[in-house]
Simulated assay, not measured.
Amino acid sequence: MATITYIYLKYIPLGTTLNDLSIKYTSKNFFSGRDPIWTEAINTVMQNGKFWTGLGNNVQYGSFDGYLHNLYVQVFYQSGFIGLLLIGFLLVSISYTISKAPKIDFEFKVLLAYFIAILFLQIFEGHLIYKLEIISVLSWIIIALLINKSSHADLFKTQSGNVNSPLTTFKKPARSDFT
């Protein structure tokens, strides 16, 4: 949804205002120049009647070595709306797990901020799935740490609040156990 909003933002007054502010304060265009690529890729899928399934995983976009610089458009291009639903289900599942965090501390907030940044980055890159680079590995590590912090924070705590993990309750076998 954010990609579609970004594509059509430049055609409304708000987009013009944002672009003018960006040029004024950063001397750079607000729009990345990728929106024509994304629009063409989406239109190609629609013109071929492949809305539900996409053009296939072995079909690459003609320019940029087949890389569309947008995870969501790339998934739609290759896997259609069904692929977008699956990616959406994965992201909603991760978000649901995160929302059940028993404790929200500073570390959790930092990991959550990174997670939100990762999702935003996917609008302009597809590192989470399509490129195997250090950024994609770090992204998955951050997501794994966030899920771990969300779902296992109180896994080994007893009712009294003491930690009762398998490592702390392990008893060394008596010598007589081996004879």
Rank of each mutant, 00 (worst) to 15 (best):
G80T: 05
S99C: 07
P173I: 10
S150K: 07
E125A: 15
D105E: 02
F64D: 09
G83D: 03
P166N: 01
N43F: 10
T39K: 14
T16W: 09
S22H: 07
F31W: 04
T44G: 00
F30Y: 15
Y72S: 03
V110S: 06
D20H: 09
M46N: 12
S160T: 14
L138E: 12
L138R: 08
G56M: 01
F31I: 03
F178M: 02
A2F: 13
N70Q: 05
G88R: 04
Q47M: 05
L71G: 02
L132K: 05
V110G: 04
F115R: 01
L85Y: 06
I142E: 00
L138N: 14
S139H: 03
T26Q: 08
S79N: 13
I123E: 12
G126H: 10
N58G: 08
A144W: 05
S27C: 06
L18D: 00
I147V: 15
G66D: 06
I23S: 02
K100R: 15
Q122R: 02
Q78C: 02
P102T: 10
H69T: 00
T44P: 02
L132A: 09
V110K: 05
E125V: 13
D20W: 10
A2I: 14
V137E: 08
G126T: 02
S150I: 09
K50A: 14
L14E: 06
Y61C: 10
F108L: 09
Y96H: 10
T179M: 14
L21M: 09
S136Q: 12
D20R: 11
F178A: 06
I147G: 07
N19Y: 03
L84K: 03
Y72M: 00
K109N: 12
L121V: 13
I118C: 00
N19K: 12
N29K: 11
L85N: 07
Y11F: 15
F31G: 05
Y6K: 11
L146F: 00
K28D: 11
T17C: 01
F89R: 01
Q60W: 08
N164Y: 05
A2H: 05
G49S: 04
L119P: 07
S32C: 00
L167V: 11
T168P: 01
Y61Q: 09
L91C: 10
H127Y: 11
F124M: 08
S93C: 11
S136F: 08
K171N: 08
T39L: 15
K10R: 15
N43M: 09
N164V: 09
L155K: 12
F51Q: 06
F124G: 05
T158F: 12
Y25V: 06
N162H: 10
S63F: 14
P36A: 05
T44V: 04
G54A: 06
K149E: 03
S95M: 12
Y72E: 08
M1E: 03
Y96R: 12
G56N: 01
G54N: 03
H152I: 01
A144D: 04
S150Y: 06
S63C: 04
K109E: 13
G80E: 02
L167Y: 07
V45H: 02
T26G: 04
G62F: 13
D105Y: 07
F31C: 05
A144L: 11
I7P: 03
E40A: 12
